[in-house]
């Protein structure tokens, strides 16, 4: 028990997580990039055209992973915001702050690629159905937490306010997911869901799943970089960071303190 507690304590301290995030980065980034290349090649070239939608359905390989990531990133943000609210762990606040802009950009991507798909297939760029509207609300929730942080100077108060908004807004995530089942929408129901066999041919499903996994790993790669930047920003004046960087010899390009990875990144 005490071992676990100690481990948790170390993991949740900025000082200890800084090198961990750096060490994890290549393990997320390299598989993500390899899978993105393979998935794009499969999705754009190898996978056959759809029997109804022809080649336009190839937007699915970026649209669905972006939409999935928009919700997953939100949960990462909301959970870390909640951890900060309850346990006041600074690192959780940094994680929540880091996840917000990534999530917002992928929410925008989900909306934009969906629009580019809707125009040729549905015949419209946008409709105010429950799925599209709730995804737009998600974008506003992200922007709201980012704006709150920008508006409040005091770091602790900003983190608490953003955490609370993020937590309250989390109710929107299941609404997005189930909107296509609860209400009649123009948007079709999920192709891939946990509860039933996917309604997609395997030649298309494999690249879609690979792309979704690639986006997920990519998110964590970017998250690691942003967390490191956040720690550097917040702990600027701390002794351990000075020891790590400032007191290093002048030849900064060749010397890597403690074999610290990610320096050349």
């Amino acid at each position: 028990m005490s071992v676990i507690k100690e481990y948790w304590h170390k993991l949740s301290s900025a000082k200890h997580f800084y090198p961990i995030a750096g060490a994890l980065l290549p393990w997320f980034l390299i598989p993500a990039l390899l899978m993105l290349i393979w998935g794009s090649w499969q999705g754009l070239v190898v996978a056959p055209a759809d029997y109804q939608q022809g080649d336009s359905y190839r937007i699915i390989f970026v649209h669905v992973p972006a939409a999935w990531l928009s919700m997953m990133a939100y949960m990462v943000m909301a959970i870390n915001g909640a951890i900060y609210l309850v346990w006041k762990i600074k690192l959780a606040d940094i994680v929540a702050e880091s996840a917000a802009p990534i999530g917002a950009s992928f929410t925008f991507l989900a909306l934009a690629t969906g629009s580019l798909w809707g125009k040729p297939m549905w015949g419209t760029w946008w409709v105010w159905d429950a799925r599209l509207t709730s995804e737009l609300v998600l974008l506003f929730l992200y922007l709201g937490t980012i704006a709150l942080r920008g508006a409040i100077d005091d770091r602790q108060r900003a983190g608490r306010a953003a955490g609370l908004l993020g937590l309250v807004g989390a109710i929107n995530v299941p609404i997005i997911h189930f909107s296509v089942e609860w209400w009649e929408t123009l948007h079709q129901p999920a192709t891939v869901s946990k509860f039933s066999a996917p309604s997609m041919h395997s030649s298309m499903l494999t690249p879609l799943l690979v792309m979704a996994l690639a986006f997920t790993l990519f998110f964590f790669a970017v998250l690691m970089v942003k967390i490191r930047a956040g720690i550097l920003e917040q702990e600027r004046h701390s002794r351990w960071l000075s020891a790590l960087y400032a007191e290093a010899p002048e030849t900064t390009t060749t010397y890597s303190p403690e074999g610290e990875p990610g320096r050349n990144g």
Binding site: D50, T124, V127, L186, Q188, A190, T191, M200, S203, M204
Partner: peptide, 18 residues
């Protein structure tokens, strides 16, 4: 005054559909 197409969640190659 507007007609929008609604598609389903199924995707497959034409040969499989045939």
């Amino acid at each position: 005054h507007t007609v929008l197409a609604k598609h389903d969640e199924n995707y497959m190659p034409p040969e499989v559909a045939d």
